[in-house]
C-alpha cells in the first residue's frame, strides 16, 4: 500500500507526496494488483505497478504477475483509493476482538465426544 499521511512520518511522506513529477511529463499512477490463483480462492495482493490507466494496468499486471500461470483473474486498484486502518491506534483498533474466546468453537468443551457438534 502507498503511505498515507500520519503524524510520525509526516516529513518523509510529505516529501514523497510533493516529489516533483519527472521533468516535462506526468508520472504514471501507482496501481495495486490482486491475483486469484485458481477458481475458488480469493484474490490476494501480489504487489503494485505503474500504468497510465486501468486498461493498461490490467495488461501490465498480466505480464508482470502471471508469467508462470499464477493467476486466473486479476484486479487492479488505484493505490490512492485504498483506505486502511490507522496504524497509530493499532492497539485500540483490534483490541475488541481480543479475549472474546466465546466466539470460537474451541471455547465449548462440554460437547466433547458428542458427534456432529
Amino acid at each position: 500500500m502507498t503511505q498515507q499521511q500520519s503524524s510520525q512520518n509526516a516529513e518523509e511522506l510529505t516529501m514523497a507526496a510533493t516529489a516533483p513529477e519527472p521533468e516535462g511529463e506526468t508520472a504514471w499512477g501507482l496501481w495495486e494488483v490482486f491475483v486469484r490463483s485458481s477458481r475458488g480462492l480469493s484474490h490476494v495482493h501480489a504487489g503494485s505497478l505503474h500504468a497510465p490507466d486501468a486498461t493498461m494496468a490490467l495488461r501490465n499486471a498480466r505480464d508482470l504477475y502471471t508469467r508462470r500461470n499464477e493467476g486466473t483473474s486479476v484486479w487492479v486498484v488505484p493505490s490512492e483509493v485504498i483506505s486502511s486502518s490507522d496504524p497509530d491506534s493499532k492497539g485500540g483498533y483490534f483490541e475488541s476482538a481480543q479475549g472474546k474466546s466465546y466466539r470460537h468453537a474451541t471455547y465449548y468443551t462440554k460437547s466433547e465426544g458428542v458427534k456432529h457438534l
Binding site: 490482486f34 485458481s38 495482493h45 508462470r68 500461470n69 499464477e70
Partner: peptide, 11 residues
Amino acid sequence: HDSATKQSAGI
C-alpha cells in the same frame, strides 16, 4: 500459503 505466487508450467 502465499497463493499469489503459486507457479506452474501449464499445459
